[in-house]
Design a protein around this nucleic acid. Structure first.
Lengths: 136, 136
DNA sequence: ATGACTGCAAAGACTTTGCATCTTT
DNA sequence: AAAGATGCAAAGTCTTTGCAGTCAT
């Protein structure tokens, strides 16, 4: 059983920052974002709370991009796109996956499936534009 | 342009090891597997060659599981299952994804899509069994 | 007061890299 | 001989953790 959690101003702030952005931030990004308003915040606290939020199911990991784990405050199922050039992670809310897919995989392979991730890799619009500009 | 690559006994061995298994090994696993036959192999060489194989498109990363990057010698599109308990990564060859998906995402979002990954997370059969045995 | 939360800094884990040496061509 | 490949070990990144002090209940 997870021990009781008390209120904490910094914990609240960390969750708010994650929920207020759609860039799927890393721990470091959250830390930098909060530093101005919480000068005494430490990176360890960010990591500890990210881990807590994950255990509680309030946020999810989108995976590791360029060595840094990226998080998503939206836990409803949706797909992601990862730019291999700049590391941007974006939501693809319009790309729906079959709702029964998890269950079908369970049946077919005899596994217990909790969730799935559909991730597209490529080059984002920004980077495509920059690459183009560079060539000219 | 990638500089020319010469033959190397160890490089060949590394690729063979990856191609001979379906466990989606980590660098460390490849290293340990080769150590008996190549006592003077170094982990750095494994990393360097894994990076090379990736650039050449001979292997692909399946992502980072429990802190370690995992690789797949099969580059043809297929889905994966990751056990959150033991970290096992397995192929789901029977779970096909729409072939035109990449292209449709490109059109819909104005991105350049190279490939996608569909990964299921849950508990594998082995771990389900162990959990069951533990309860009794 | 109790026990959770945090800052700080050290430790850990994985990966990358510089350099001298060995191999391939 | 020239240039790539490797071993070794140091360095680099990101993340976790121990401990003493602080804060919520």
């Amino acid at each position: 059983m997870e021990r009781a959690t008390r209120y904490s101003k910094k914990r609240e702030a960390i969750l708010n920052v994650i929920r207020a952005t759609d860039i799927h931030p890393s721990a470091e990004w959250v830390y930098q974002k909060l530093k101005p308003d919480h000068p005494d915040l430490s990176l360890g606290t960010v990591y500890r709370n990210l881990a807590l939020f994950q255990r509680q199911g309030m946020i999810q990991s989108v995976g590791v991009v360029n060595g840094q784990e990226r998080f998503d405050g939206v836990t409803a199922p949706h797909s992601h796109f990862v730019c291999r050039r700049c590391g941007a992670v974006m939501d693809l809310h319009r790309t729906k996956l079959d709702v029964g897919l998890d269950h079908r995989v369970e049946e077919e392979y005899g596994l217990s499936v909790e969730r799935h991730e559909l991730i597209f890799y490529g080059c984002c619009q920004d980077c495509l534009g920059k690459a183009e500009a560079h060539k000219i």
